[in-house]
Design a protein around this nucleic acid. Structure first.
Lengths: 334, 334
DNA sequence: CATTTATGTGGGATCGTTCCCATGAATTCA
DNA sequence: TGAATTCATGGGAACGATCCCACATAAATG
C-alpha cells in the first residue's frame, strides 16, 4: 500500500537515483524516463516520505508556534486567534507546515520538543521567562518573539506601539471634552497593558489633566469576567464621582465593564463613554459597538512568518525590533 | 553545537548502541554507564533528533488537524477556536504534536502534505467533499471527522445531535408561550444548520404551531454581518407581523440580528425573545446575554484525540459514530 | 571444573530519501 | 578518426536514530 522510491524506480525500470531526480525535479532525466517515472508515480499515488527527506535535507519545512496562556485556552482568544490565523496563512503560502503548541507555564520543557530538530524555526508568542529565551538560544534554532517582553537586543521581536496607542486614546478622549478619567488597567507585568496605561497617563499629564481626576483600578486578569466584576464593584465610585469616560487596556475588560453599565441603565456614550484597546471582532459587534485602538495583528502575524523565513535562510542581517503603529477606531461607545 | 548520538557515545566512552539504550530508556545498561552517558547528555544539552527517530520508528508522534473555512479565518472563529484549543490540550497530554492547517477549498491538495507520512493521524474538521475522503482513505492514514457531513459508514465521525438540539429549543420557546416564530437559517448544505432547522420545525409541527406562524429566512453565510444584514432587511416584517421570538441556527447570526433589534429599541426579551445555537463565549458576554443551545465542543475535541489515538494504535475495532447531546442554556434574551 | 544462565556491550543493518561522483553513450569539434 | 564535451544514468555513502543479533564476561548451577 505504501511505496518507496526504490519500488517506484524498479517499476519504472530505472535506478532510484534517476527516480529521485525526476521526482524532486532537480537533475538530468530524459523526457522518456521522466514520463515513465511520472506515470508510475501517478498510478500508485506515490508521495515521497517527508521524514526521510527532512533527514537528509536537515530541513523540515515546518515551523513551531508556541503561545503562552495564563489560564484560559488561547486559540479561541479573540486576539491571539487572529494572530495564529494570519501566521497559518502566511506559513502555508511559503510552504511551511505549522506546529502549534500552547503552554500554561512557560517552562523550558514547553519548548523542548520543538528543539528536537523537527522545526526549522520558532515563533514565540506572548510573554515568557528569561531563562526560556536562554534555553532556546542555546539550540541555535532560528526564532523570534511576538508581543513578548524582552529587552534582549539580540532577539528579533515584533511589538505593537502600545505606548503611542495609549497616548492617542487619551488625546482623542480629551478632544471629545472628557476631563475625568476612569481606567481599568490589566496586569502590569504584561508589556502591553503596562505601556498602554503609561502612554495614556503620560498624555493626560501632558494635557494638564489633574491627577485627582484620574482613577486607575488595577485588574489581575484581563478578561471579560474581570471587567464585569471590577466595574460592578466600582460602579458607585464611577457614578458618584461623575467620571465621564472609561478607558481599559484591552477590549475584553471594556466589554465586561460595559455590560455592567448597560445593566445599570447607564447610557453609552451619552452618560459615559467607553474605550478599549485591541479591536477584537466583538468590539464592532457589541451593542453599542466599542471605540478602541486597533492593533494590526494580521500584519504582525504575516510579518512574523516572513521574518522567520529570512532568519531560517540565514541570508541577511536584519534589524531586531519591529514596531507596529496602532490606529484609533471610532465607534458608538464614544 | 549540535551533537548526535555517536558523539555522545564517544564522549561517554561507550558505543552508540549503548548510548541509545540509555537515552531511549529501553535495554540493558549498567548504572555506571547509565550515569556517565546521562552526564554527557545533560552537559551538552543533547536532544535526540526527532526526525531520525521518526524515520526508524515509522511514528512521528504528531497528528494533523485540517479545518476548512469558507471565507473568513477559522482559528479565530469562536466555535472552531474552542475545538482546536481542546484538541491541542488533549494531544499534548498524550505526547502528540499538532500540525494545524486551514484550507479554503477543501481540495485534495490540502490534505496532501499531511499524507507524506509526517503525521500519524488526521482530524478533519467541518464539511469536505466526498472525493477528499476517498483520497485520504487511499493512503490508509488513520483519520476521523468532526462535524463533517458524511454518510459513509466506514468513516469515524463525531457530530453533535443538532436535530435534537433544535427540537429542544423549539419546545423550550413554545413552553414560554411563544406562538409566532421567526427563523434565520444558515446555509442548508451545512449539516448542523440543516439539522438544527429541521429539528426546530419538526418540533413546532408536533406542537401544532401553524405553518403560517413560522417565517424562515435563509442565510447564505452564518456570521455576524449576515445576521445583521438580514435582520435589518426583515425588521419591518418581524415587527409588523408581531413575531415574538427569533431563533437562529447559530449564535453569530443571533448576535448580529440582536444588534439590529437593540438599535431599533426593541426590548429583549420583553418585546421579542432571541435564541441562538452553539454557546460561543460571547453569547454570555453580550448584553443582553443570549439564550442558546450549548454544544460541548470541548469534549468533542478531547474525544477526537482519544479516538484518533486509538485508531493509530489500531488495537481495537470501534464504533464509527459518536453523537453529542446538546443542552439548553437559558440567559437574558428569552 | 565444565556448562549453563544472566548481564552488559558493540557491530552493523535498517528506515527512505538526496546527492556526489563515476561511468557509459552520444554528440561535437579539430 | 580521435579527443573533448555534453548528456543520461546508476552506485553507494550519508543523514541520525533504533534494534537485532553476536559476543564477551561474570555469576550460578550441576
Amino acid at each position: 500500500m505504501k511505496y518507496n522510491i526504490k519500488e517506484i524506480a524498479l517499476l519504472a525500470g530505472v535506478s532510484k537515483s534517476t527516480a529521485s531526480r525526476v521526482i524532486s525535479g532537480k537533475g538530468y532525466a530524459s523526457p522518456e524516463v521522466r514520463q515513465r517515472v511520472n506515470e508510475i508515480v501517478e498510478q500508485l499515488q506515490y508521495r515521497p516520505n517527508a521524514v526521510a527527506r527532512a533527514m537528509v535535507a536537515k530541513r523540515t519545512n515546518s515551523i513551531g508556534v508556541i503561545i503562552f496562556r495564563e489560564k484560559q485556552p488561547i486559540v479561541s482568544h479573540p486576539l491571539y486567534g487572529k494572530l495564529i490565523d494570519s501566521i497559518l496563512m502566511a506559513a502555508q503560502q511559503r510552504g511551511y507546515s505549522v506546529f502549534l503548541k500552547t503552554d500554561q507555564e512557560m517552562s523550558i520543557q514547553s519548548t523542548d520538543y520543538m528543539l528536537e530538530q523537527r522545526v526549522d524555526g520558532l515563533i514565540l508568542i506572548s510573554r515568557l521567562q528569561k531563562n526560556v529565551i536562554e534555553h532556546v538560544k542555546k539550540f541555535n534554532v532560528p526564532y523570534l518573539m511576538v508581543n513578548g517582553s524582552t529587552d534582549d537586543p539580540e532577539v528579533v521581536h515584533l511589538v505593537s506601539k502600545d505606548e503611542i496607542g495609549g497616548a492617542r486614546a487619551a488625546a482623542y478622549l480629551h478632544s471629545l471634552g472628557h476631563r475625568k478619567f476612569f481606567i481599568l488597567a490589566g496586569p502590569q507585568e504584561h508589556r502591553s497593558h503596562n505601556l498602554r496605561l503609561q502612554g495614556f497617563r503620560e498624555e493626560l499629564r501632558r494635557l494638564n489633566v489633574e491627577e485627582s481626576h484620574i482613577h486607575v483600578v488595577p485588574a489581575m486578569e484581563s478578561d471579560f469576567d474581570q471587567g464585569y466584576t471590577l466595574m460592578a464593584k466600582h460602579l458607585s465610585t464611577f457614578i458618584g464621582e461623575a467620571y465621564s469616560v472609561l478607558f481599559t487596556t484591552n477590549d475584553m475588560l471594556a466589554l465586561g465593564a460595559m455590560k455592567v453599565m448597560l445593566q445599570n441603565a447607564i447610557r453609552i456614550p451619552e452618560q459615559a463613554a467607553v474605550m478599549g484597546f485591541d479591536d477584537i471582532d466583538f468590539a464592532a459587534a457589541y451593542s453599542p459597538s466599542l471605540t478602541t485602538v486597533k492593533v494590526d495583528t494580521t500584519r504582525m502575524g504575516r510579518d512574523a512568518v516572513v521574518l522567520l523565513d529570512r532568519l531560517i535562510s540565514r541570508n541577511q542581517d536584519m534589524s531586531k525590533l519591529y514596531e507596529y503603529a496602532s490606529e484609533i477606531i471610532i465607534r458608538q461607545s464614544t
